Amino acid sequence: MQNLDKHVISQALQWLRSGESTWLCTVLATFGSSPREPGSLMAAKADGQHVGSLSGGCVEEDFLQQLGDGRFQKAVERIRYGAEGNMGNHRVTLPCGGSLDVLIEQLAPVPENINHLENVLTTLDGQTVKTRRIALDNSPQSLGAQLLHDEPQGARVWLDPDDRFVDVRVGPVSRLIIAGVSSVSIYCAEFALAMGFEVVVCDPREEAWANVNVPGIRAEYMLPSLFIAAPDTCHRATAIVGLTHDPRIDDLAVMEAIHTPAFYIGVMGSHKTSQARAERLQRTGGLTAKDIARIHMPIGLALGSKTPAEIALAIMADILRVQRGKARHEL
Rank of each mutant, 00 (worst) to 15 (best):
M268E: 14
F31L: 11
P231G: 03
A108H: 13
K306V: 15
P224D: 05
G52R: 01
D162A: 14
H329T: 13
S182C: 03
A155I: 06
S182D: 05
P224V: 03
S183H: 14
P172I: 04
L54Y: 06
F191R: 04
W158Y: 13
G82M: 02
I299H: 13
A155Y: 03
S33D: 01
D162Y: 12
C25S: 07
R283W: 14
M297H: 13
P224Q: 05
L301E: 12
L100P: 08
T260H: 12
I319A: 10
V102R: 00
R175M: 05
N213E: 14
M195D: 12
V181L: 00
A276P: 04
P95K: 08
V166K: 00
I315C: 09
Y221K: 15
I249F: 07
N213S: 14
D251F: 00
D167M: 02
L243T: 09
R248Q: 15
V102E: 05
A83E: 12
L301T: 12
L226H: 14
R17W: 01
V8G: 04
C234G: 08
Q73S: 14
N213A: 14
R324F: 03
N86Q: 13
N113D: 01
Q106I: 06
L121N: 07
L226Q: 14
E77I: 10
L313H: 09
I311K: 03
I186G: 06
G48A: 03
M42C: 01
T128V: 15
R248C: 12
G88F: 05
